[in-house]
Amino acid sequence: MSSALEDRTYLPEDDLDNQYGEMIQSLASAAAAEGDFQPRLVMGSKTIELPNEIAELLGQVAEAMQQGLAVTVAPKSRELSTQQAADLLGISRPTLVRLLEEGKIPFMKARRHRRVMLSDVLEFQKRQRHRADQALSDMVADAQAFGDYDDAYLSEAISGDPNSKH
């Protein structure tokens, strides 16, 4: 591709919302009827075989647009303002600035303004999720070790079925 990567937000048009859902359903039905589950992108006479991950992503994009949600596509090399990064992480801007100053997320300074790379914010988010998952696993292991953890109760909570005996 010779064109420069740029981020772009796609907004669904109100009259097209239902068409996205109908299009997805008809494509899925046609593929199932033919026994063909290889996702493809067809543009005129050109057909591109898609990996399942990309097909799933495109399905999520179409579903979001069907629900009237905007979809933004941005290269990982995109720079974000501190407010954009804070919004992405679901934290306040002052909290983000504290994380930047503590060195937990790399940043650049353009005059007085801090800028962060989208890839760095996503990496921080991934690390935080991993830490949270590990902390939860440790808590469950500790509770099991002390006999305070009821496996039957957990099965019920996960399945939503009070009669579940998993």
Rank of each mutant, 00 (worst) to 15 (best):
L69S: 05
F107L: 02
D138R: 07
V61W: 04
S137L: 09
A152V: 10
V71K: 01
P75A: 03
Q134H: 08
M117W: 11
H113T: 11
R129A: 13
V71C: 03
P94L: 04
L122P: 05
A110Q: 13
G68F: 04
S92T: 12
G68I: 03
M108N: 14
H113G: 05
F107Y: 14
Q144E: 13
H130C: 04
R112E: 06
D133C: 10
E101C: 11
A64M: 02
T72N: 04
A74P: 00
M139F: 13
R131W: 14
A110I: 15
A62N: 03
D151S: 13
H130F: 13
L136S: 13
V140S: 09
R131T: 09
R115I: 05
R127E: 10
R115P: 01
S119G: 14
Q84I: 00
K109A: 11
E101I: 15
L69T: 01
A62C: 14
A85H: 01
T72A: 01
R114Q: 10
A70P: 04
S92M: 14
G90M: 06
D87M: 00
R115D: 01
M117Y: 10
L89I: 02
M117K: 08
A152Q: 06
E102T: 03
S119P: 01
A141C: 08
I91M: 13
L122V: 07
R131K: 10
L99F: 07
S137E: 08
K76L: 11
R93W: 07
G90I: 07
M139L: 11
M139E: 12
F124E: 00
V73S: 07
F146Y: 08
A86D: 01
V140G: 09
L122D: 15
T72S: 05
L89Q: 02
S81P: 00
Q67N: 14
Q60H: 06
P94A: 04
D150Y: 06
L122A: 09
R93L: 03
D133K: 12
D133H: 13
L118A: 15
V73Y: 06
M139D: 07
K126A: 13
V140M: 15
E123R: 15
G103Y: 12
V116T: 06
L96N: 00
K109P: 04
V116G: 02
M117R: 08
E79Q: 13
R98K: 15
A152N: 12
R127A: 08
R129S: 06
V121Y: 04
S81T: 06
F146C: 15
H130N: 13
V121E: 03
D133A: 10
R93K: 13
R112L: 07
R111D: 14
K104H: 08
R98A: 15
D87G: 03
L80G: 02
D138Y: 09
V121D: 01
S77V: 12
T72R: 11
V73D: 00
G103F: 12
E79M: 11
A74W: 00
L58H: 06
S77G: 12
